[in-house]
């Protein structure tokens, strides 16, 4: 695999595009996010790994305001998530403001949710036309380009139910990209796919990373995190227990909990993954 050493990919001086400060959230008595602090730099591939139920997905959904949090702050592209400044005071968003913000953040989730009543092409132009007010013609041009980039040039008129899981997920990536987002969020984008379809989706994500897209990737694909990730945050029980360059996390984990988690994940596919790093 051809890639720049992750640590050098994005210089530390690049200002953070996303700043997460002391975010907490609980469902009833269950504390799912326990004081999260995290930065994502412009152009960085920021992976979040950790055991199921550690709060990764919840954190990701806080970034595009699909989930609200109890305290702390998230700033994304100089927007304080959840608030707009009016007369020097930060006022809670209206529904319209929340929608406008979400249109700038792409989300690809585990359960592929292409609009089932629309064709692939219609899915991709839906956002630009309906949300951004683009002309249908321009949206189709962009969509055509995006669909060939994700390898679906011949699937414009297919309905989602006629596609494989991997094709659906690639179409979902194209749909998110059609909004020209500042950031792409991936929430276990390959978890629901058959093993042989995972590679094609990861390939598209990797290409996107090489194009310089800022990406926050919650994943169980350790090889992807290792190869494409710049910095990795390890979450456990609502906290970030370790955070650092991919090379360090995978070769010299400092926390015993991280080492244990990685050991579990590499148990069945160790050899290849490790050799790449050597």
């Amino acid at each position: 695999m051809n890639y720049a050493p992750p640590d050098l990919h994005v210089a530390a001086e690049v200002p953070a595009l996303i700043r997460i400060r002391n975010v907490t959230k609980s469902y009833g008595t269950n504390l799912v996010l326990d004081g999260i602090n995290l930065d994502v730099r412009q152009g960085e591939v920021r992976c979040i790994i950790g055991p199921s139920g550690s709060g990764k997905s919840t954190l990701l959904r806080c970034l595009n305001a699909l989930t609200d949090f109890d305290s702390g702050a998230v700033v994304l592209d100089e927007t304080r998530v959840g608030y707009t400044e009016r007369n020097g005071v930060l006022k809670p968003w209206t529904g319209r403001e929340a929608a406008a913000f979400r249109s700038r953040v792409g989300l690809v989730s585990q359960h592929v949710n292409l609009f089932s009543h629309r064709t692939v092409l219609e899915n991709v132009i839906e956002g630009p036309v309906q949300v951004l007010g683009a002309s249908r013609q321009a949206a189709v041009r962009t969509a055509t380009d995006l669909l060939s980039r994700v390898g679906l040039a011949d699937k414009h008129d297919s309905y989602p139910s006629q596609l494989s899981g991997g094709q659906q997920q690639r179409a979902a990536i194209a749909r998110a990209l059609a909004m020209t987002p500042r950031v792409m969020l991936f929430d276990e984008a390959t978890s629901a796919l058959d093993p042989e379809l995972v590679g094609e989706v990861l390939g598209v994500m990797q290409a996107l990373a090489s194009d310089g897209m800022t990406m926050v990737v919650v994943t169980h694909e350790m090889r992807f995190a290792e190869e494409a990730g710049d910095r990795i945050a390890v979450m456990d029980a609502g906290r970030i227990i370790e955070d650092g360059p991919a090379s360090e996390i995978f070769s010299r984990p400092r926390q015993p909990r991280t080492a244990e988690f990685l050991k579990d994940h590499f148990r069945f596919a160790p050899a290849e993954g490790r050799r790449d790093r050597a």
Binding site: L66, R102, S109, E126, G127, Q130
Partner: peptide, 26 residues
Amino acid sequence: QPGQVEAAIALGMTRAKAFRRVIAPQ
């Protein structure tokens, strides 16, 4: 499917638009 609504919201649609464009036709 709730995910269809969520996808529309995540794309930046307001609730009203998500209802018209996604929920109602389905």
